[in-house]
C-alpha cells in the first residue's frame, strides 16, 4: 500500500487502473485516484466525462471492466452482497436527481435509513430526523410529500437523508445544483461542518468553482477518461496547465472537448463538405 501512495498513506478510497466502457463509449481509460480520509475531495470535469459513473463504481453499483477499487480496506470486487450492504450502511449518497421515495413524506424519507437499520425508539427517530431537516432548513417541510417540493428543496431533503445516519463516507453528486445563493452557502458550510466536527470523508462532485474551492481540500479534474489534474484548489487555479486554464476559464477551445464526439457539422446539416 505504502509503496504506491505518496503523501497520503491513509486513504479511504483507492482506485488503480480503472477502465470502463459503456455501450461503445470509453468512459475511463486508466484512472488512478485516492480519496484521503477525513478530507473533502472534489471531483470536477466536463459534463459527461463520467463523474457520476465514478461514484457508482466507488459504491459498487457498477462493476468496472478492469482496475482495482478499494474502499476502507475492502476490495469491492471481492465483496459479496451482504458485505457490500454492510459497507454501504456507512456511506451516505446524494443522488444527482435526489431520488426521493415518492410514496413517503419528507419526514419518512429522511427517517427511512434509520427505520431500516436501527431499532430506535420513535422519539429518538423523530429528534434525529428533525435535527437533520433543521440543518438543511426544511424542518417546517417535514410533512410535505416529495411532489410538493421544488427541485432545490428536494436536493436538500436528499442531503438530509444522506447524512441521517452519520456515515463515515459522504458522497455528494452535484449538491449545489438548483440552490439559491443562501441555501448554497448553508450547504457549503454544512459540508465543511460535517467534515470537521464528525471527521467524515467527503467526495463532492460539482461544477461551481467558487463553491468547490471553499469546500474542498483537494480537487481531481477528470477529462477524456483520465485524471487531467490533481491538487489543492489554489494549486489548480494557479498552476495553469492547458486543462485547468481551459476548464476553469470556461473556454470552448482547448484540450477539453465541449462537444460530444460527432460527425462533421456541415455534413450533419446536409451541406456538401467544403475542403479548404
Amino acid at each position: 500500500m505504502s509503496a504506491i501512495s505518496t503523501s497520503h498513506t491513509d486513504e479511504l478510497v483507492r482506485i488503480r487502473g480503472l477502465r470502463t466502457q459503456l455501450g461503445s463509449k470509453v468512459i475511463f481509460d486508466g484512472v488512478d485516484l485516492d480519496i484521503p480520509r477525513g478530507r473533502v475531495t472534489a471531483i470536477m470535469g466536463p459534463s459527461g466525462t463520467g463523474k457520476t459513473t465514478l461514484l457508482r463504481h466507488i459504491t459498487g453499483q457498477l462493476v468496472p471492466d478492469a482496475g482495482e477499487i478499494v474502499v476502507d480496506g475492502h476490495d469491492l470486487s471481492k465483496l459479496d452482497r451482504n458485505a457490500l450492504f454492510d459497507l454501504r450502511e456507512r456511506i451516505g449518497y446524494l443522488f444527482q436527481n435526489s431520488a426521493l421515495l415518492t410514496d413517503f413524506s419528507v419526514f419518512e424519507n429522511v427517517a427511512f435509513p434509520l427505520r431500516q437499520h436501527a431499532r430506535l425508539p420513535e422519539e429518538l427517530v423523530r429528534n434525529v430526523v428533525l435535527m437533520k431537516l433543521q440543518a438543511v432548513g426544511l424542518r417546517g417541510a417535514a410533512e410535505l410529500m416529495p411532489a410538493e417540493l421544488s427541485g432545490g428543496m428536494a436536493r436538500r431533503v436528499a442531503l438530509a437523508r444522506a447524512i441521517v445516519r452519520d456515515p463515515t463516507l459522504l458522497i455528494y453528486d452535484e449538491p449545489f445544483v438548483g440552490l439559491d445563493p443562501i441555501a448554497l452557502n448553508q450547504v457549503v458550510k454544512l459540508i465543511r461542518v460535517l467534515n470537521e466536527t464528525l471527521g467524515l470523508t467527503s467526495i463532492v462532485v460539482a461544477h461551481e468553482l467558487s463553491a468547490v474551492s471553499r469546500v474542498s481540500d483537494e480537487i481531481y479534474l477528470l477529462a477524456a477518461g483520465r485524471v487531467a489534474a490533481h491538487g489543492t484548489p489554489q494549486e489548480l487555479v494557479r498552476g495553469a496547465t492547458d486543462w485547468t486554464r481551459q476548464f476553469f476559464g470556461g473556454e470552448a477551445d482547448g484540450p477539453v472537448p465541449f462537444h460530444y464526439p460527432a460527425r462533421d457539422y456541415a455534413a450533419d446539416l446536409g451541406f456538401a463538405q467544403v475542403r479548404p
Binding site: 459504491t59 453499483q61 450492504f85 454492510d86 454501504r88 450502511e89 456511506i91 449518497y93 443522488f95 436527481n97 431520488a99 426521493l100 421515495l101 415518492t102 427511512f112 435509513p113 431500516q116 437499520h117
Partner: peptide
C-alpha cells in the same frame, strides 16, 4: 427515477 438505486445505496 433512481428510487431503486437509492434503496440499494441505503443498503
Amino acid at each position: 427515477t433512481d428510487q431503486l438505486a437509492a434503496m440499494e445505496m441505503m443498503a
